[in-house]
Write a protein that binds this DNA or RNA. Sequence first.
RNA 1: UCCUCGGUAGCUCAAUCGGCAGAGCAUCCGGCUGUUAACCGGACGGUUGUUGGUUCGAGUCCAACCCGAGGAGCCA
Length: 447
Amino acid sequence: MAPVITIREMPRHVGEEVVLQGWLYQRTDKGRLQFLQIRDGTGFCQAVVFKKNLSSEAFQAARRLTQESSLRVRGTVRQDPRAPGVPGGYELDVRDLEVIQLAEPFPIQPKEHGVEFLMRHRHLWIRSPRQWAIQRVRASLVRYLREWLDSHGFLNVDTPIITPAAAEGTTTLFEIDYHGEPAYLAQTGQLYNEAHIFAFGRVYCFGPTFRAEKSKTRRHLQEFWMLEPEIAFCDLEQLMAIQETMIAQVIQRCLQENQDELRLLERDTASLERVQPPFPRIHYDEAVERINRAAAAGEKVPGYDEPVPPLEWGEDFGSPHETYLAAQFDRPVFVHHFPTAAKAFYMEPEPDRPEVCRSVDLLAPEGYGEITGGSERISDPDKLLAAIQAHNLPLDAYRWYIDLRRYGSVVHSGFGLGLERTVAWVCGLEHVRETVAFPRTLQYMRP
RNA sequence: UCCUCGGUAGCUCAAUCGGCAGAGCAUCCGGCUGUUAACCGGACGGUUGUUGGUUCGAGUCCAACCCGAGGAGCCA
């Protein structure tokens, strides 16, 4: 009885008779010879069916196979450079074939389809090779990020998803009914993380966050996963150093360990190889100057065919500004010291220049936009109280948050990394909707 | 919410000035021993997003609405 192996294990079984079980991805019928492209979740491989090598019943069964039919094939693993697939270069010389279920005509073919059609069939679309590669990269990146944090003194903590008040305004929150009291789905775990650092020093939370924004762009989802490290005894400069080290090491590890997936996605890895420290750091003042110089010269935003719009000091960046700035550098770029008025209430103003705050965004290259946003937090209780009042936030809801500064306050900083944008960047995707199995966008909640 | 573009066979798309609704893929049948989204022959497949209007005649022109795509704003 031949052993059942996975496609990924085929290189270790050359010359041996084995059984593969999976689904038919595609079939090429040459008459007395058929090529079956089979996938089993671990990879993709070709099974070669010669009529003379198996019973006529099994051969006829192979001829009737439809796309996505489930099957079991027994045969000998053979090394052959012509064999496509992942890992590729190995094929199965079939001796017997068992159809488990003959699939009904499958709606998704290995060819071009429209976005709407694919999204409506998302539950079937995730079987496609590109989607398979993306989800594997996503899972890998999550693992690398967690392992990096775990090995650098960070404790993984969990923060609540049901929250009583808004951290950054209520307009973009999903409201739910908490036994008669309004509650909201969390759009960040940061405030709770700040409580955690006073217990554990360095922490991170990782989970879904929710933003009811009417955003309909390639960078937005209603539900996305955010990794949020928070660090005690850490100022803005140290925060940038931690970010660039973590991101550079995670990207380099991904290049090493996910070559099959990146090749399948036809990702140009040269730009990812350049993701090495130090990342350029530019002050908001300089960013505004660069943008307005480009605007005055009538420069185009790369990939947009539109001129760079001018930016008045004090405004937050628009999407074209981010894209233009990021395109000026060959690796991710930090933009720091944004105007205090344009940012969240808890960000520490610069002591000798309070109109800017100790905040930093990391812009990914190639138009992928802001992948992290962070800041040094206000550590003085009186300044925090004043900031809450200046933003007209309900004081009662934030008493516990101010408490954190009353009992042994320290300089601390943190940032949030948007997983979907990071995955889209690493995979070179057009849109973040492909980076999660069942994306929640403005127009799709099903399936 | 705003701007631009689109909606025709299961899918991807054609259809000239307003004049017989057509291909490729998928499916089914037949052929082919090295295919990489194979190729060759045949069959099946239509309320042209919805409603109304103009016209001898509307996929095509007009209006409203619905749905989608790209972008803006907002944001990670």
